[in-house]
């Protein structure tokens, strides 16, 4: 079974994706953190990262290319990091600007959330954004995330200070929003 939504597929990274990954990182609008600047990433940098990823059954991250089902086109990147198996995980997403407002990001996030709650059995999913990114906060809230805490004025972007914002969604909140699913993880 592929990680498949209504209009997207989440698939593994391939060498031919690397230039697009560099392009996403080099667009100040599609990546959130000043930490990742400057926007001079090259395909070769991503190739190095790609080649350093080794086989393991004990990985705490997942990295996926978001591909549109109709055109078979790469539209973005979605990942999870810091997985504590059966407990919590942090997710992140970048979507090419051409596909903003298309609903593909929400679709991809729904696919990843289903995977994390149903297959990885996590109890909490977390994400980071900032108060300058109303679009991201709105999308996360639409999916059921709630703002959990913030670090005030800790983001500097486009000459302005913003709060770093952490959002989270509990397992029971996810299953309440998806009554078609049954939560069979043992209660604590």
């Amino acid at each position: 079974m592929a990680l498949e939504g209504t209009n997207v597929i989440l698939r593994e990274q391939r060498p031919e994706d690397l230039q697009l990954l560099a392009d996403l990182r080099n667009d100040l609008d599609t990546q959130a953190w000043s930490k990742t600047l400057p926007p001079d990433y090259t395909q070769r940098m991503f190739l190095t990262q790609f080649e350093q990823r080794e086989f393991s059954y004990d990985r705490d991250d997942g990295r996926f290319i978001i591909e549109s089902k109709d055109a078979g086109e790469m539209v973005g990147y979605i990942s999870y990091t810091g997985l504590e198996m059966r407990w919590d995980v942090t997710i992140g997403i970048m979507i090419a600007k051409d596909f903003w407002g298309s609903g593909l990001a929400i679709d991809a996030l729904q696919v990843l959330l289903l995977f994390l709650f149903e297959e990885m059995g996590v109890r909490v999913v977390r994400l980071w954004t900032h108060t300058g990114n109303a679009r991201a906060i709105g999308s996360a809230e639409k999916l059921g995330f709630k703002v959990s805490y913030r670090q005030r004025e800790s983001i500097f972007k486009a000459g302005k200070r913003y709060d770093n914002v952490n959002m989270d969604m509990l397992r029971e909140e996810y299953y309440t929003l998806h009554p078609d699913l049954e939560d069979n993880l043992p209660p604590l």
Binding site: D88, R126, S148, Y149, R150, R152, N166, D168, L170
Partner: peptide, 12 residues
Amino acid sequence: FKETGKMRRAGL
């Protein structure tokens, strides 16, 4: 210091 929120379910 000011409390700026809480990360839910940090542990058990």
